[in-house]
């Protein structure tokens, strides 16, 4: 479930990135790297787990599935937090810089 959620996140982010390319003002590329990287790693994890469990891998317990869903969603949330922090630090549109300098002038 975690793999599935991260793959969906990666695909959605890639579509958004492609739609806005070559402009990268919102730095959606950061999200693409995060989610694709983790998706590939979880895919490997899933393959090893499948090799161990066989078809049982596809019929998880409800509690495990719920836990994995929570994990997947919180992974997506963490990725988005990393992206927002990177966006505010790099500030490609100069919005933060403009806001800070404006404040300096008024005070």
């Amino acid at each position: 479930m975690t793999l599935l959620i991260s793959v969906f996140a990666a695909v959605i982010c890639t579509v958004i990135w492609y739609k806005n390319a070559p402009k990268n003002e919102m730095m959606v590329g950061v999200l693409c790297w995060l989610y694709w990287g983790s998706s590939i790693m979880w895919f490997v994890d899933a393959v090893f787990e499948y090799a161990e469990l066989g078809a049982e891998y596809f019929t998880p317990e409800a509690a495990d599935m719920l836990n994995d869903t929570f994990l997947g969603l919180s992974v997506v949330a963490l990725g988005m937090v990393i992206w927002v922090v990177a966006l505010l630090i790099k500030d490609p549109k100069g919005v933060v810089k403009k806001a800070l300098t404006k404040k300096e002038i008024t005070t």
Partner: peptide
């Protein structure tokens, strides 16, 4: 840097999974 970004991105989220 593409490789670096993909590796760091995956590693950070997987570290979170391991903490979980």
């Amino acid at each position: 840097k593409w490789l670096t970004n993909m590796l760091w991105g995956g590693a950070v989220l997987l570290i979170y999974e391991h903490v979980w």
